[in-house]
């Protein structure tokens, strides 16, 4: 996978709380058997009307806002475990999602698809929304090495948490399966010792 080190980008502000996975990608679009094409239906029912026409007021349809960073209200990604939500966000071209709170499963799914979830304080989030209202072309910088996000409009920075293992995965572009496959012998031993193999 592509490595992630730092990113500076304009942002797309989605000022809605509790954005659930059914909004990110409605169930009727889950029927594909590959990971491709989900970006086209990201936020489908907010983005397009019944006739498939773009809804002008929705943020993704507003030409003022673009970029690789999605900024969303708290509790982003609640609901279903569908990884299709992460595929849709990645497929659309987002590399980072910023919120003050993420649902657990979404956070894992997002990381497994090299979309970095960045948790910021409520205040930092509120200021981000305000900054982008003042200047739609404002940017943020996400520096994974330093675990730091900077609002380049206010010049304020905040650090964010990520465990060392996942950070290494992002910095080097490798995934969990690569790691686990190297541990097969250990898994077999574990099964034997614990009588777990069914």
């Amino acid at each position: 996978m592509e490595k992630f080190v730092t990113l500076t980008s304009t942002v797309v502000p989605l000022e809605v709380e509790n954005v659930d996975t059914d909004q990110i990608i409605p169930a009727r679009f889950l029927k594909a058997t590959s990971k491709e094409g989900f970006g086209d239906n990201l936020f489908r029912d907010w983005r397009y009307d019944k006739n498939g026409e773009p809804v002008a007021e929705f943020i993704l349809n507003n030409p003022l806002y673009k970029g690789q960073v999605l900024v969303a209200g708290k509790n982003f990604g609640s609901g279903s475990s569908r990884e299709h939500a992460a595929w849709a966000i990645a497929g659309y071209g987002f590399k980072v999602v910023v919120s003050s709170f993420f649902a657990d499963i979404f956070k894992n799914n997002s990381m497994n698809n090299f979309v970095l979830p960045v948790v910021v304080s409520e205040q930092f989030l509120a200021e981000l929304f305000e900054s982008v209202r003042n200047d739609p072309e404002m940017t943020v910088t996400v520096d994974l090495e330093k675990q730091q996000i900077t609002n380049n409009y206010t010049r304020k920075s905040e650090t964010f948490a990520i465990n060392t293992y996942k950070k290494e995965c992002f910095l080097n572009g490798f995934d969990d399966i690569d790691y686990l496959l190297n541990k097969k012998e250990q898994i077999e031993q574990f099964e034997q010792c614990n009588g777990l193999k069914l």
Binding site: S81, E83, N108, N109, N112, D176, I187
Partner: peptide
Amino acid sequence: FGIGTSEVEMVLATQC
């Protein structure tokens, strides 16, 4: 608990 598809692949491949 529920998991995503990448994790389904992990379990298919390694039961972990």
